[in-house]
């Protein structure tokens, strides 16, 4: 059982939703899906006022920059598979909304950043769910998330050492460097130095708000394991090392 893989935390949230409300959420999901027809919709929804400005809500999510991947799935009762007699019949009263994300930071940091930073976004996606307390105040919101959260049995990350920010900065750094290497092949020493300095100053991050987040992403920070987010996970990791070293002793014998 572990919700932690390096810098990433696995959140699984399963919340009931009235069947008749499902369509509203599906519309909201669709509106938030980044695809071409959205451009027109954005233009349209922006004019309906901030409550409907989905692009702005996504903006908050991007600015938070804690998530690697996230998904929402709604499963209706009749969609639960029934594969024959060896499986007991079920009669679920609700449809279920499943939310899965891979994020950086601690549980509290993530949950709190969402409720403080983009409360409307959360309410937009969950307020049709049974018992949703709204994302502010935080006490009931924490309770709701804790109550409906399911622990991960097995969690894998291909790059546990990297926060979402680390990846964005690495990608930008690599592109800029490659471009520089290409450009610099024919440069003399002086020109090289000047251009290298320019490169470094661009890698520090560019504040021009017209630039995309990625273009101005700061690239010069170091990358190392995250500070410990949970004492429990430290204990688990220690135990694991101990188990392994015991096993190794046995193997050696």
């Amino acid at each position: 059982m572990s919700n932690i893989a390096g810098k990433a935390f696995a959140m699984n949230l399963i919340t009931p939703i009235e069947r008749k409300q499902v369509k509203w959420n599906k519309v909201a999901f669709w509106l938030l899906t980044p695809s071409k027809p959205r451009n027109f919709l954005n233009w349209f929804t922006k004019r309906l006022g901030p409550r409907f400005d989905f692009a702005a809500k996504l903006n908050g999510l991007i600015t938070l920059s804690m998530i690697h991947y996230a998904r929402w799935v709604i499963v209706k009762p009749e969609e639960w598979p029934h594969l024959g007699t060896e499986q007991p019949r079920e009669d679920p009263a609700y449809a279920y909304q499943l939310f899965f994300s891979n994020f950086n930071g601690s549980w509290a940091q993530y949950v709190d950043s969402f409720s403080a930073g983009i409360p409307e976004g959360l309410d937009g996606l969950w307020n049709k769910n049974v018992g949703w307390p709204t994302s502010v105040p935080q006490g009931p919101f924490h309770d709701y998330v804790r109550h409906n959260e399911v622990w991960t049995n097995y969690y894998y990350s291909a790059y546990p050492m990297a926060a979402s920010n680390d990846i964005k900065s690495s990608k930008r750094l690599r592109n800029e460097l490659l471009d520089f290497i290409d450009r610099s092949e024919k440069m003399g020493a002086k020109e090289f130095q000047r251009e290298y300095h320019k490169l470094l100053s661009s890698l520090q991050g560019n504040p021009n708000p017209d630039f995309t987040a990625e273009e101005k992403f700061p690239c010069l920070g170091q990358m190392a394991p995250t500070p410990i987010v949970s004492l429990a996970s430290v204990a688990v990791r220690r135990a694991r090392v101990e188990i392994r070293s015991v096993e190794e002793v046995h193997d050696a014998e």
């Binding site: 926060a163 170091q222 394991p225």
Partner: peptide
Amino acid sequence: RQFEFVQQQWMNYGNDFKLGN
């Protein structure tokens, strides 16, 4: 939420500022 968070995430880490570690 206040002291430990600032100590851990903002003093001993830089991710929130996009400064890596």
